[in-house]
Amino acid sequence: MGALGDLPDLPTLRAVTAERGDVLTTPTPQRAADPLGEPLARALEGDEDAFGEVWRLLHPPLLRYLRVRDRDTAEDIAAETWLHVVRDLGRFSGGPAEFRAWVFTLGRHRAIDAGRARAARPSTPTAEVVDIGTAPSAEAAALERVDTEAAVRLVASLPGPQAEMVMLRVVAGLSVAEVAAIVGKKPGTVAVNVHRALKKLARTHRARAARG
């Protein structure tokens, strides 16, 4: 009763129709495997190049998540997080989903701690939004940087907890349940918040891009 074998299988789950607002929708088909899985397995064995791959896959998302929390300390906290990960990697066992959850949880804890230390010396956070329209054109890399940068700032303009949920969902690749466990809220709350935020921000983002 309740043992793993009784859980409905994936296709069946996907067939469940879900209602959002007043609209009945069918969920999308199964997604592809996590590209982190293979390099992670090799990195856990000590493969240095594989670890580099893992880092390249997760460091930008981690940075972006941390930037939403606090721009100025994001780099430092991400660096500390990785050193921590590297130190304890030998004790980690699990798949890519667990690894993502672990890395982002570590980063989040460090950010919280740093935030507490900083609370004694408050500074006004800035969440100005870059207008993409006025961004300098030029080579693709610069544009890409601006796009991503602008998108991150846009998310940072949301209230803190909501911004965090969006980043953990969209960028960290965590499930609703995982995000809920990390931030300490109900999965339903996470789902609603992320949906609303994305709806609103996607509109804004499109409008700004169109103006450019």
């Binding site: 996907r14 469940v16 969920p27 609703v176 949906h195 994305l198 709806k199 499109r206």
Partner: peptide
Amino acid sequence: STEHDDDGLDEFADSDL
């Protein structure tokens, strides 16, 4: 991921944002 990723992620996955 759970089956209830109905938080708009699929819907917005192709958005520029």
